[in-house]
């Protein structure tokens, strides 16, 4: 399952989708919204995605992971829209026979999603906002 969704992610559902009776390990990464960045308070994040391509990129990442590790199950869900501190932005779950593969595969998948999937987030602070990673150190001030 690869999902890009406006709705709150049901973490248990992602885990259940990735689970397998043949697996001895289910590894889950949950990415959440921090309440701070650059020593400032984050009010909320705005996430957007080029949805069709994001799904295609994540599918390629999963394919590469399945070549490198024996995945018995997997699922990825990424939220878009407005997210407040503490909310879940992304969940990656994989199941494998033994735990080492599950840690490695899960880390590989989330790292590759962050590097390649066309998804963006803007941090909204008190009095300013900034597209994350877009510029060397620019903050756009709104007032």
């Amino acid at each position: 399952m690869i999902k890009i969704t406006q709705k709150a992610i049901d973490v248990q559902k992602v885990i259940d989708t990735a689970s397998s009776l043949g697996a001895g390990a289910v590894n889950v990464f949950i990415g959440t919204v921090r309440d701070n960045a650059h020593k400032k308070n984050v009010r909320w994040l705005e996430y957007e995605a080029y949805e069709a391509m994001a799904v295609a990129e994540i599918r390629m990442i999963i394919e590469e992971a399945t070549h490198r590790w024996k995945l018995l199950g997997w699922a990825v869900s990424h939220r878009i829209g407005t997210l407040k501190p503490g909310e879940v932005a992304v969940v990656v779950a994989v199941s494998t026979a033994h735990r080492k593969d599950s840690f490695e595969a899960c880390e590989f998948i989330i790292d590759a999603i962050k590097a390649k999937a066309p998804i963006w987030k803007k941090e909204v602070f008190e009095g300013g906002e900034e597209w994350v990673s877009a510029n060397p150190q620019m903050v756009m001030h709104t007032n």
Binding site: M53, I113, A117, I119, K121, S133
Partner: peptide, 10 residues
């Protein structure tokens, strides 16, 4: 065709 600035998902 899409214009893709630095991505920042996750």
């Amino acid at each position: 065709i899409a214009v893709i600035p630095p991505v920042s998902g996750g």
